[in-house]
Write a protein that binds this DNA or RNA. Structure first.
Lengths: 207, 207
DNA sequence: CAGCACATGTAAGACGTTACATGATTGG
DNA sequence: CCAATCATGTAACGTCTTACATGTGCTG
């Protein structure tokens, strides 16, 4: 259900074709809500069928066309209503912590690989989100620029502040995951030393 | 795909009926991987069809039966193989941060409600996970007890350590979400004061 | 004998993933 | 004229949610 609101959020800044939308999507909202084009195009059609958006066929070159969508009043309403409705949280479903809970079944090296991969995964997300923070501060994100262009001056501060705040939260989360995984690596070392004779060494401080 | 490994992880401690499994599930693995019974029973049947587990019909009272499953060698292998295989991470899909990024479209009070609900949501998760940490320290979780009973003495420390470590990670995450949402509440206050005349007051410190 | 726990599902639909498919336009 | 990019999907499959369905056994 969130996909359509992610799309509405983008379209609210002004008309966009499915293709443009899909491109901008992966550079903005896509950072918090991933969706492939094979999901975006059909969803746009569905939203059009429900009159949340309207598409207009535009000529492109000689033979081709493209469909440019804009938000209807009903769509704007739907977006605002969603904004004022309690969120539905997805149930926990976390493969990394699932595996971590049973790492005693893995060889220490495999456990290390797992944590290294976890670090790697979140380092990449972190880089994305930190990059986005920079682009917010420099007002360099194209969608943010378009957004600000259609925003009342007195609302611009808020608009920027919430985006900044969102990405700060994501950055914090990524750092949390990374530091957890680093502690995991240390834990494996400690357990291995404990296991190989040093058993109850009071100096092998546990976290 | 993770569901079956969550089930295998539980079944590895010894035979369980679908019903017991489902009950224990919600009290242990369910804390990291939610699944309703309507998903568990069919998955068990599928796993049996693939020879990862075997079910045995047991009489219950006069007419009723129950099906008790145990892990086969192939199932044990599958679990260990999964343990040594890189995890597949789900793409980001985070409704809370999606909404946060566009909170300028909501009335301040609605934005506050959103953050309060977020805090509430994660406080509840936090309580769950902290409770589980306690039950780990007191070795009071029934599944952990059964697990330790079939674990070589030299592996017991590792077994407990990884469970503890897992829940510590979850607790950290919950705390992170809560503190983010609390900062969100402060941000709304600041923006509202800034908006109502105090505009460029150098004393309204931003985070 | 009532009510709760035990016990096991099915069915329909939403949502997501992956792979496949196709053609037009534009710039070098 | 060739490659990149513009442009828009379909099809099959797997996962998850929600609601419904049904009956037995035990305990007070």
């Amino acid at each position: 259900m969130s996909l359509r609101y992610a799309l509405l959020a983008l379209l609210r800044v002004g008309p966009l074709s499915g293709y443009e939308l899909q491109k901008q999507f992966s550079l903005s909202v896509g950072h918090v809500w991933h969706a492939p084009d094979s999901q975006i195009y059909p969803e746009l059609r569905k939203m059009e069928a429900e009159h949340l958006i309207e598409g207009e066929e535009q000529p492109r070159g000689q033979r081709a066309t493209r469909r440019v969508y804009h938000v209807t009043d009903a769509g704007e309403q739907a977006f605002l209503t969603w904004m004022h409705t309690p969120l539905e949280y997805a149930r926990v479903r976390d493969p990394a912590h699932l595996r971590a809970a049973y790492l005693e079944a893995a060889a220490p090296d495999a456990a290390r690989d797992f944590f290294r991969a976890h670090i790697n995964q979140w380092e990449r997300e972190l880089a994305q989100w930190e990059g986005e923070l920079l682009r917010i501060d420099e007002v360099a994100n194209p969608m943010l620029v378009r957004r600000l262009a259609v925003t009342e001056p007195e609302d611009r501060e808020r608009t920027i502040a919430f985006k900044r705040f969102t990405y700060e939260g994501l950055v914090d989360r990524a750092r949390g995951e990374i530091s957890w995984a680093k502690r995991g690596l240390r834990l494996i070392d400690e357990l291995q030393h404990a296991g190989s004779g040093v058993r109850s060494d009071p100096n092998s401080a546990h976290v």
